[in-house]
Amino acid sequence: MTHALTDDAVTKDGCAIRASGVGRVFAGTKGHQVIALDDVHLEVAEGEFVSLIGPSGCGKSTLLRIVADLDHPTSGSLTVFGKSTHQARVDQDYGIAFQQAGLLPWRTVAANVGLPLEVHGVARSDRQTRVEELLELVGLTDFARSYPDQLSGGMQQRVAIARALAESPRLLLMDEPFGALDEITRERMQAELVRICSETGAAVLFVTHSIPEAVFLSDRVVVMTPRPGRIIEIVDSRPTAGHARDDEFRDAEEFFHTIARVRELLHGGPVAAARGVETR
């Protein structure tokens, strides 16, 4: 079984991500500037699952890329476990999974999962043990010697998630990892992700366009405005006592109530209008 986080891995204030007044401006055509993010304030706690949702172009992926040290804010600051994003990347504090699994077709499933460990010089025996743990975690033990083109889309995404977990990261960054999957496979993968996060204890920052997906997976859903991306509201989506994140929860009244709340914010209903958010 894969390793859960230990007490030694917890920051003093229990904060995995802290964004303070983050803005990102890109140079546009003809000298015009494109404001992707504006004055974003957000904290994600250790072990917390937080989703970012909003219309295309609202800066969701830009914010995730800033956390991953793949981009940098124009204004404000962002830390990961109290460190600079660069230091967190160097320390391998997070793993990343994107919409496309990005597996190397000439490597087996086991070799794809073990690639980060191989790159960082982990001994072969230790690498093999860790890969076996991860394949058990994502239910792919029997496919260790298979190649990516022999797997379904959902199975490929499970390999990508296992690879992202290879170095026991304290944080998972996920940019629409299930966006290309059919609905049945997508719901199955959501349930798998809930289980994996419960077993590993990792915090998650998750980008999605699906309201039901965000509500099902998350402790909190961050609702963002059209560009320039700002946070309208952060909706608590934790199941109440007596409910678990399973198929029964998808039929629960509170699940539909939270979906309606997020949809109202996204589509400029009374709540959003009261906050001065542009309506359509």
Results as ranks from 00 to 15, higher is better:
103 L>E: 11
103 L>A: 10
103 L>I: 09
104 L>P: 01
104 L>T: 11
105 P>A: 07
106 W>T: 12
106 W>G: 08
106 W>Y: 12
107 R>E: 08
108 T>M: 04
108 T>N: 10
108 T>V: 03
109 V>N: 09
109 V>D: 12
109 V>H: 07
110 A>V: 02
110 A>L: 04
110 A>K: 13
111 A>Q: 15
112 N>Q: 09
113 V>W: 05
115 L>A: 08
116 P>T: 11
116 P>D: 13
117 L>C: 08
118 E>T: 12
118 E>Q: 14
119 V>H: 04
119 V>S: 09
120 H>V: 07
121 G>T: 08
122 V>T: 15
123 A>K: 13
123 A>S: 14
124 R>G: 04
124 R>M: 06
124 R>H: 09
124 R>E: 13
124 R>S: 14
125 S>E: 15
125 S>L: 07
126 D>M: 05
126 D>H: 11
127 R>A: 12
127 R>L: 13
128 Q>W: 00
128 Q>Y: 00
129 T>Y: 00
129 T>W: 00
130 R>M: 03
131 V>A: 03
131 V>K: 03
131 V>S: 03
131 V>T: 11
133 E>Q: 15
133 E>W: 01
133 E>T: 04
134 L>R: 07
135 L>M: 08
135 L>V: 06
136 E>N: 13
137 L>W: 02
137 L>G: 01
138 V>T: 05
138 V>P: 08
138 V>S: 04
139 G>P: 03
139 G>L: 06
139 G>Q: 07
140 L>C: 04
140 L>E: 10
140 L>R: 09
141 T>C: 04
142 D>T: 14
142 D>Y: 01
142 D>A: 15
143 F>C: 11
143 F>A: 15
143 F>P: 01
143 F>W: 13
144 A>S: 14
144 A>H: 11
144 A>K: 15
144 A>M: 06
145 R>Y: 02
145 R>A: 14
145 R>Q: 15
145 R>P: 00
145 R>K: 15
146 S>K: 13
146 S>W: 02
146 S>R: 15
146 S>Q: 14
146 S>P: 00
147 Y>C: 06
147 Y>H: 13
147 Y>N: 07
147 Y>G: 07
148 P>F: 05
149 D>L: 13
149 D>A: 13
149 D>F: 08
151 L>M: 10
151 L>E: 13
151 L>T: 08
153 G>R: 12
153 G>T: 04
153 G>D: 11
154 G>R: 05
154 G>W: 03
155 M>Q: 15
156 Q>W: 00
156 Q>D: 10
156 Q>C: 14
156 Q>T: 01
157 Q>Y: 03
157 Q>P: 10
157 Q>N: 12
157 Q>C: 10
158 R>C: 05
158 R>Y: 04
159 V>M: 03
159 V>H: 05
159 V>P: 05
161 I>D: 12
162 A>M: 08
